Amino acid sequence: MQLQQNVSLKPYNTFGINVLAKYFASFSNIDELSELLSHHTSQISNHKLILGGGSNILFTQNFDGLVLKNELKGISLINEDADYYYVKAAAGEVWQQFVQHCIANNYAGIENLSLIPGNVGASPMQNIGAYGVEIKDIFHSLEAYHIQDRKIVIFSLNDCQFGYRESVFKRQYKGQFVILSVTYKLHKQPVFNTSYGAINAELEQMGVKELSIQTISQAIINIRSSKLPDPKKIGNAGSFFKNPQISKFRLHVMKEDYEKIPAYPVDDTYFKIAAGWLIEQCGWKGFRKGDAGCNPLQALVLVNYGNATGKEIFDLSTEIIQSVEAKFGITLEREVNIM
């Protein structure tokens, strides 16, 4: 819990951007968090950042404030009924390790979210999602610490107001709460979801005869590993942009020129378009300028090949947004938080 000054954040963000935090400390229990906020915030800075796995953030400059690293740990089955297990995980748990724990215990519903980088605490904040499943589909509740009022608040599913990679914690409550733990509602009888992307093709390639949450998880791990660079080897934050939504009519018009445009229905009116495909059509896939680049296997992923600055990666993302807008009339939105 020791407060440090001028600490490099390079080990704490998956892009590997080397910026400095003016003040830095970690906490592993609520008492430590409360003490850090009570004794230090008013004295040193009102500018603070709660950092988890650092997997969805791009630092473009030094952080002139207090960075608090969430190290809360613990996973427990807190309840069950005829249909569901209710599993509580502390916010500092590594997401993939939590997913593996659930799969090992046959808690179903989380398998499609395998190998997403980051920690548990970010999952409701971002409403993380992949391969047809989002956090809102398995979410029950969370505990969060109100920084100003110094009290724990319980949030239900409705309270979080989940949207596409959105929640109240990214909007009206941004910077007001520290997520402490999340409780997930997981199936006793699995409901398999293999319709999205290349899951079925990968399961066939694996020779799977009987579906299970274990085989689906492994298929998704295989797919993600084949497309996404390991942040430990090449700095990245996974998908940099959100998949845009367009109307059914507009999709119909676009298909006149681009018959094979990847589109997935959101509802009766709107479709989600693969942002990676749009970026690739603009010629960015595999692009590199200095150490900032666009992944050659998945254009949706921007990468740091070593010593790129956050500004260089941000500037590249701006060029990509401009080119997609010029070609398709669609404005991409960054999924990664820019600091």
Results as ranks from 00 to 15, higher is better:
residue 219 A to K: 01
residue 105 N to K: 12
residue 298 Q to M: 06
residue 206 M to W: 01
residue 103 I to N: 11
residue 231 P to E: 10
residue 236 N to T: 05
residue 151 K to F: 00
residue 216 I to N: 01
residue 241 F to Q: 01
residue 125 M to I: 15
residue 257 D to N: 15
residue 78 I to N: 08
residue 300 L to V: 08
residue 290 G to I: 02
residue 322 Q to L: 07
residue 93 E to C: 13
residue 66 L to P: 09
residue 223 I to Q: 01
residue 75 I to Y: 01
residue 15 F to G: 13
residue 149 D to C: 07
residue 195 S to N: 10
residue 107 Y to F: 15
residue 200 N to R: 04
residue 81 D to T: 03
residue 103 I to R: 03
residue 150 R to V: 01
residue 11 P to F: 10
residue 188 K to W: 01
residue 271 F to C: 13
residue 153 V to K: 03
residue 304 N to G: 11
residue 291 D to T: 05
residue 243 N to G: 11
residue 321 I to Y: 04
residue 75 I to N: 09
residue 263 A to D: 03
residue 214 Q to G: 03
residue 75 I to H: 06
residue 201 A to K: 15
residue 21 A to H: 09
residue 80 E to A: 09
residue 300 L to Y: 05
residue 320 I to P: 04
residue 195 S to M: 04
residue 283 G to V: 00
residue 36 L to H: 07
residue 140 H to V: 05
residue 288 R to P: 01
residue 44 I to V: 15
residue 271 F to M: 14
residue 106 N to S: 15
residue 287 F to C: 03
residue 140 H to L: 11
residue 131 Y to I: 04
residue 282 C to M: 03
residue 241 F to R: 09
residue 28 S to Y: 06
residue 64 D to H: 08
residue 38 S to P: 00
residue 242 K to D: 11
residue 37 L to V: 14
residue 178 V to H: 09
residue 185 K to E: 08
residue 245 Q to K: 08
residue 166 E to F: 01
residue 294 C to L: 06
residue 279 I to P: 02
residue 182 V to Q: 00
residue 132 G to Y: 07
residue 6 N to P: 02
residue 193 N to T: 10
residue 202 E to D: 02
residue 19 V to C: 15
residue 271 F to P: 05
residue 316 L to F: 02
residue 197 G to R: 07
residue 264 Y to C: 02
residue 235 G to E: 13
residue 17 I to H: 05
residue 242 K to P: 11
residue 230 D to P: 06
residue 52 G to H: 06
residue 20 L to A: 12
residue 322 Q to P: 01
residue 81 D to V: 06
residue 173 Y to C: 10
residue 264 Y to L: 05
residue 165 R to I: 06
residue 81 D to W: 04
residue 184 Y to K: 03
residue 140 H to C: 13
residue 197 G to D: 06
residue 157 L to N: 07
residue 338 I to Q: 08
residue 259 E to V: 12
residue 317 S to E: 05
residue 220 I to Q: 05
residue 214 Q to E: 14
residue 246 I to Y: 09
residue 331 T to K: 06
residue 64 D to N: 15
residue 211 L to S: 06
residue 238 G to Q: 04
residue 115 L to N: 13
residue 234 I to G: 04
residue 66 L to M: 13
residue 153 V to H: 12
residue 329 G to C: 07
residue 207 G to K: 09
residue 164 Y to I: 03
residue 52 G to F: 12
residue 192 F to H: 06
residue 111 E to N: 07
residue 65 G to R: 05
residue 24 F to Q: 07
